[in-house]
Design a protein around this nucleic acid. Sequence first.
RNA 1: GGCCCCAUCGUCUAUCGGUUAGGACGGCACCCUUUCAAGGUGCAGAGACGGGUUCGAUUCCCGUUGGGGCUACCA
Length: 487
Amino acid sequence: MTAVPPRLRFAPSPTGDLHVGGARTALFNWLLARSTGGRFLLRIEDTDKARSTDESTRAIFDGLKWLGLDWDEEVVFQGANLARHRADAERLLASGHAYRCFCTSAELEERRKVAAAAKDAFKYDRRCDRLPAAEVERRVADGAPFVLRFRVAAGETAWEDLVHDRVAFPNKDIEDFVILRSDGTPIYNLAVVSDDIAMRVTLVMRGDDHISNTPKQILLYQALGVPLPQFAHLPMIHGTDGKKLSKRHGATAVGDYQHLGILPQAMVNFLALLGWSPGGTFEEVMTLEQLVAAFSADGLLRKASVFDPKKLEWMNGQHLSRIPLADLEPRVTPALVAAGLATADELAARRDWYHRLLDLLRVRSRLLDDIVRQAVPFFREEIEYDAEAVAKQWKDADAVRPLLAATRETLAALATWDAAAMEEALRALAESKGLAGGKLFQPLRVALTGLGVSPGIFDVMLMLGRERTVARIARAEARLAELVAGG
RNA sequence: GGCCCCAUCGUCUAUCGGUUAGGACGGCACCCUUUCAAGGUGCAGAGACGGGUUCGAUUCCCGUUGGGGCUACCA
């Protein structure tokens, strides 16, 4: 690793939501900064005014904040640095590293088409670089529009990549790329280099789809007389079909996962293990703090990985069960409120009860929504009976009804309302009827929750309280009577 | 087409020349058990292919194949 703490940056263009690929890039930059005492900077690359939007910028901020990735200095908006970009381009022109090109995009496109038809690789032929000085002056005087192209010298451009080791490009394969548009605005590679220099970025870590940009940027650094940063190119994240992650793979924005009920802790943990490994055998479920402690550029992998939603859900279930209740509560409360089950005030008023409920439900949940769904019978006064559960557990209504009645009476007569007392009395009741415990507990579960699935039956009754428990059983008896009557 | 990157179970990965190729997710089975989860145990499942180098290659080199990325006056 670098001797001095590195300065890293995440530089997305605000042309859409923060995607998981971008989030992973941001995460690795952040992780490396936090684990080395370096700095993590954020730059919004909004030089493409046509595609950049404020909503996108906001989505990026929100996504990063949700993930818990904070940045260290003022956000840099690339569009604000136009003057410098332009000055750098002019400097390159003055120093002879760039030249004016009068070819129009229409002409270029035509030549590209011709080359494609002939199955030739198109590369700008430098015709404008061969223009006599007088001709160039004449055209400029005439007001002819021109772009600035970087003059790529012969040779080879290579660098020692932190993840790929040595990567090299023969300069003959790099065309004289445009650095300044005819309207005086900078092209990506120039803007990036100019800004990275200005921000004193020492380590550029980004997706490996940028590998082919790197030799161009290196050439720019050299022409500008500035020492090179280190480069690290991260492998891509693919969809289950092996192709680059895109809309047709379903949820790809971090916001999508937030709404699906994924915890940021799980998202970060899952993403961290895509393209990075601490090596050896290790516990996969980690907190952000543990990730920071374990992270190192040495563990960066080069192979593209497939985004597996199944594992993300498992990871989420793990975090759901492990994080402090105090951290879980603020994630669940809004969902409960949105579902109309309770108000935030009501929940706050019986916080102990609420926390006990969360503790009961989170173990059997993978997504936040699973908690909400299971919480319903604990909040609604009137429960609904799940048809499947009724069909299975209340099949023999004539037998179940008296059993429930006896259960109700037993519970109502209990000296104390605690699990041990319930269990002792109910098991005794079942035994007196010659039944296994389950034969009593299952119909009771349906009576209390309307569902075939719930936390342990004694926990359910404890959470419900004696009064509601008894009332629900009575109501179930009535419902059973209707069923027998053919209702 | 050209250039570049990549290649271990279906997926995420361990292995830094010598292992019965290990773990996790998912799948299956069993255990626990009042249901569902969680947890525990077990089973199936991988070095793309061909050449080298070496006493010995998953590991190093070359090639083939396959996959991916880039190829704009987008970023």
